[in-house]
Design a protein around this nucleic acid. Structure first.
Lengths: 140, 140
DNA sequence: TATTGTTATACTCTATAACTATA
DNA sequence: TATAGTTATAGAGTATAACAATA
């Protein structure tokens, strides 16, 4: 067993660097971190209840409400009553929301690739693929 | 440019899984997350001011004080006045502190390796090495 | 004047409980 | 009775400001 720092001890600084890199980009687009998470989640497919969205992005459903209010009043998402259940709200991203989300993600991607440049070229794809596998296995 | 989730979006769930895995181990040894971070930092070498320790583990110096009080009264660290500067305190880990730290880290390592089993064997070392490079580059 | 450790205070984020309207 | 969304409240964690001792 080789000596190395704990995984969490290594991931902490990387995570802080990623957040510090994203915050200016988000602020430039007048979007909060949670707002961006919501847009990213809705970009894949519409969600049929706010509770489901909260669980999908690991947020508290009570905390999401102000976020959704802001996104809706900014015209980035739509909150329509669900056809079958008048309690629920169907959440969809608007074309403008998708445009904004794509712009933000593209800017973030540029910075991410810059960070990944500290890795030997043949390690980069392996690292990203490993992250994908581990995050998929960490869903619960 | 291949499509993939943001790095932060993938690291979030992994980080939560790691924390959820560590908490029971820490509780079993009656150690807080910050206490473990302090012991791990001091295990490498003594630190000559509390402020330096705070910066090393990315903590607020005011928040560290209660943590150090607990560790000291548990006999896991020593806080001695610095020879040259009577304001400062030299922080050292005790033999018992080192024993505890090693036990906790060994238990964490077992669980980490179990998580890494979702990766193809030839990806594991690459992933850990990439984490090490990225965290080293994320120090500021 | 600046720094070390400390205490006290304020603030942010998050979770808990309670309410309404539907089912 | 249970669930979706909402609101209001309480709690944990964190940062900010101010202090005494020393440099």
């Amino acid at each position: 067993m080789e000596a190395r720092p704990d995984l969490a001890a290594m991931m902490g600084p990387i995570g802080r660097t990623l957040v510090a890199m994203e915050l200016p980009i988000l602020r430039e687009h007048e979007l909060s971190m949670w707002g961006y998470a919501v847009l990213s989640s809705l970009d894949d497919q519409p969600v049929h209840t706010q509770a489901a969205l909260a669980e999908a992005i690991n947020a508290d459903k009570t905390r999401l409400i102000a976020v959704l209010d802001d996104l809706q009043s900014a015209g980035l998402i739509e909150r329509r009553p669900a056809p079958g259940d008048r309690r629920a709200r169907v959440l969809t991203i608007t074309p403008e929301g998708r445009r904004l989300r794509n712009a933000v993600q593209a800017a973030i991607r540029v910075e991410e690739e810059r960070l990944l440049e500290v890795l030997p070229p043949d390690q980069r794809a392996v690292f990203v693929d490993a992250l994908r596998r581990l995050s998929a296995a960490s869903k619960p």
